[in-house]
Structures are given as structure tokens and as C-alpha cells.
């Protein structure tokens, strides 16, 4: 896993006090996976996070963008409640009727600031300029995180 992927771009100019990134994915699953990679890479060196624990969860939402918001918020929830940082994300997003459903299995280990080169904590995902859209190549999202 690496954040040096051309699917992820970090932006300085969107939020002065915080961090923003845009992510591209050929599929919805890939978009979600790389959004999670970008999120973790904003706070730590994701390549140093081994897989020692897993968490599985499901989410549903009537919009795809709010499903992404909830998915990323879930990763922050486990960061604080279980002290875990993640580096592996297996995502399955499906639409049934008007509702979107997500099944995720995410793997990582207990946060270790030295080993993982943690730079900063993340408080929350914001709705500030939050965007998910279908493009010719697939999907694209813009996320601003509160630090």
C-alpha cells in the first residue's frame, strides 16, 4: 500500500488549517479503498502498518457520497475506540433499489507513533467541499479532513 499513487492527490490550497485530498477510482470499490489509503496516509506512513487485527462492518446510505463519508468516519471511530490504524481495505459496495450498501473488512494494527511515523491526529471528515462524482474514467471524490 502506498500513498504515492497517482489515484491520490493531496491539496494544500483548499483548507488552510487542515488537509484535503482528491481520489480517483475506476470502480466505486476502488474509490473507497483509495480514499481510505489517503485518509490514513494523511496521518501516518501507511507502508509501516502491518496487518495484525481486522474489523468487519456494514453500512448503508441513500446516497453514495454519504456512504463514503460514513465509511471514512468509521475508520476514525476505530482509531480512537480501539486505537487501531489500518492499511488494508477490502470493500464491496452495491446498490439495491435506491439504497447503497457497503461491506468492509479492514486490517491493521495498534497505533505505534514511532513505528508508523504518525504526524498528526485527525478529528473528523467534513462536508466542506465534499464531492463524489462519476467521471468518464470511473469515480472521483474530494475530501477535506479536520485536524
Amino acid at each position: 500500500m502506498t500513498s504515492n499513487d497517482k489515484r491520490i492527490k493531496f491539496h494544500d490550497d483548499i483548507a488552510i488549517a487542515d488537509t484535503a485530498f482528491t481520489v480517483k477510482g475506476r470502480t466505486v470499490d476502488e474509490l473507497f479503498e483509495y480514499s481510505a489509503i489517503a485518509l490514513i496516509s494523511s496521518m501516518a506512513d501507511i507502508s509501516k502498518i502491518d496487518i495484525k487485527e481486522k474489523r468487519e462492518f456494514t453500512l448503508e446510505s441513500n446516497n453514495l457520497d454519504t456512504l463514503l463519508f460514513d465509511f471514512l468516519s468509521e475508520i476514525l471511530f476505530y482509531k480512537d475506540s480501539d486505537n487501531l490504524l489500518f492499511s488494508e481495505f477490502e470493500i464491496d459496495v452495491k446498490k439495491q433499489g435506491k439504497q447503497w450498501y457497503l461491506k468492509a473488512e479492514i486490517g491493521g494494527e495498534l497505533a505505534n507513533p514511532n513505528k508508523h511515523k504518525v504526524t498528526i491526529d485527525i478529528k473528523a471528515i467534513t462536508m466542506h467541499m465534499f464531492k463524489l462524482e462519476k467521471t468518464r474514467e470511473g469515480y472521483e471524490a474530494r475530501v477535506v479532513i479536520d485536524i
Partner: peptide
């Protein structure tokens, strides 16, 4: 208020 407040806001 740390993660407690962040979660309530979210």
C-alpha cells in the same frame, strides 16, 4: 473534547 466530541459532531 477529543474523539468524544468529534463523534458527536460527526
Amino acid at each position: 473534547s477529543r474523539g468524544f466530541g468529534h463523534q458527536i459532531a460527526t
